[in-house]
Design a protein around this nucleic acid. Structure first.
Lengths: 334, 334
DNA sequence: TTGTAGGCGTTATCAT
DNA sequence: ATGATAACGCCTACAA
């Protein structure tokens, strides 16, 4: 049994394909009796328009593309998985389908060249600006998620504000020697979180000590590496980690040296990753609204597809402090 | 600047669209000089065939669909994220594109009805057999990953063998009162792992004690709930968890009661999830080959697309014991 | 209200 | 070796 076509329905109903098309699409007048009959037959056959034929004539695919850099997609973080799932569900709610693709370099994804999508969600700040630029020149509707760049719509987290809040929390708890660790600073989000850390120290009259800043490496062991390096040369009383997996593996490095958390070193993370509740002790962190970003991004993208000529919007979402046990004394907060 | 078409190239080159099509596709003879000129122009314009037109005439989309049940996609486990990434990269290597979709009920995904994909990768064992059955009736090429069912190609993990090995490892270490915990038994993989546990006890002449088996709930807290229930009524010396997140949160429940790991209770997990190396102590677990499953699944699916009438293949992949510190005495192993 | 016909971009089958 | 031309399935004027 092959896929039913308009022609098949037309033959069964004894009308022309044009009438069937009209009946099913709802555009154009059709006799009520024949319309009902057509709908019945279509239902019976499980008819749905062939998308290739449809998009050929309509000049739209009703697909959107989810693009992410391979280094982020491959990483074991759950972060982008949650965004992906939310994007898919929101797209489907609007009758759009989702293409998932990872990119490794700056070559234009075939998704675009072959016209497989009407618009793009570009996720994460590891996608190169030059790729984004060439996409923009193609005038394909798109929105950046968890990233931002002048001239392109974006939905992102207030990383600077979050880094500031996290650091301010530690200062409020009495800490003065506060370190910052990250997998790498070669990443916009992490750099912004670092900037927030810097600003908080400055705003509180504390010195910025380069000895207290350490990079590790990409991946799940990044925090372990960064923290180990740091502890070889300095002894902070608290540390801000650029994300939760980094914080979690840094905690191992701290414990390996026989230090206690939070008594000897307080730790604060970033993201409110599911892992945060499973560290020992549970991790105080900055919550990032992943599915909120996803929902806003899909809404904005569909709007841009309908109405392409709009000034770029940049939507920044604030973070939220989640106090658990890795910084101690939650009671002193007001 | 709009997308270039065959016609545009033909006009520039002063030939017909048919010639251009032949030159680009490589099928049919074309004069070497004109072929080169055409390739040059196409390159210059950044031409790529419009996929809607192409798949309309070729009757194939060069897309495959990645289907997963919403409950699994939403879960914070990184498990399926790794499979997704591997499937995408392997598909792309073969010039196929990937549709990502979650399903919540048994209605036929529109991906299929609208002919948007040539085949499907069905991931996880929460997709209902009745949905799979109706897909099969549509005769759409598909392969199950991390799931199996008679009559449909599948690539899956040897869960029974893994459960057996895990339990046997504990027995080898001298344990006699070994518990089994899981988020739920309403899931094929978890039931199979339980079955492996059961068989190992039986094979070693140990009794199966229902008091030592506990279910928790779906999600990251499942292990905590299950372990708490268990400890209220029994006191095992070791516990097999149906997966690593379950094991990780069970460890919290154990510690909350002042018990030590592995001295009071040894813990073994399943999956070798990235989290396993971050628990305290690091988790001994059964490694599952996620990207291997993905690669095999894509290869098998593309073969089925080319050549649909084949007997179903069922590929089972063994697991591998990863000894870390949560069971103690790694030295006694030979 | 309904049918006829043209066209979307590509491939494939014919002639030439 | 190349060029018309007819599909593929759908949509939409326009005609009846």
């Amino acid at each position: 049994m092959k896929r039913p076509t308009l022609k098949a329905i037309a033959k069964r109903a004894g009308v022309s394909v044009a009438t069937v098309s009209r009946a099913l699409s709802g555009r154009g007048r059709v006799d009520e009796a024949t319309r009902e009959q057509i709908l019945r037959i279509a239902e019976e056959l499980g008819y749905a328009p062939d998308m290739a034929a449809r998009s050929l004539v309509l000049r739209r695919t009703e697909n959107i593309g989810f693009l992410i850099h391979a280094v982020q997609s491959t990483s074991p973080h759950t972060f982008y998985g949650e965004i992906l799932t939310a994007v898919e569900q929101e797209s489907r709610r609007h009758r759009y389908h989702l293409h998932f693709a990872t990119v490794e370099d700056d070559t234009l994804p075939s998704l675009i060249k072959e016209n497989r999508v009407d618009g793009l969600i570009l996720v994460g700040c590891d996608l190169s600006p030059s790729l984004i630029q060439s996409l923009k020149e193609r005038r394909i509707p798109m929105v950046l998620v968890d990233n931002h760049l002048p001239g392109v719509d974006s939905i992102f987290t207030d990383n600077i504000g979050g880094g500031f809040q996290a650091t301010a929390h530690l200062i409020r708890l009495g800490h003065r020697r506060i370190a910052f660790i990250t997998e790498t600073l070669n990443n916009l989000s992490f750099r912004e979180r670092f900037e927030g850390y810097r600003q908080a120290l400055e705003a509180n009259g504390l010195p910025i000590d380069p000895e207290l800043v350490a990079e590790g490496e990409r991946g799940f062991e990044g925090g372990f590496v960064a923290m180990s390096r740091l502890l070889e040369r300095a002894r902070p009383t608290a540390v801000v980690a650029a994300n939760d997996p980094t914080a979690a593996s840094a905690m191992r490095a701290i414990r390996v040296r026989g230090l206690r958390i939070p008594e000897d070193i307080a730790v604060i993370g970033f993201d409110d990753d599911p892992i945060a509740v499973h560290t020992e002790p549970p991790l105080t962190t900055m919550r990032v609204f992943r599915s909120k970003m996803a929902v806003l991004a899909v809404a904005r993208l569909l709007d841009l597809i309908k109405n392409p000529e709009q000034p770029a919007l940049h939507i920044r979402i604030e973070t939220q402090l989640m106090v658990r046990q890795s910084c101690g004394s939650p009671l002193t907060l007001s």
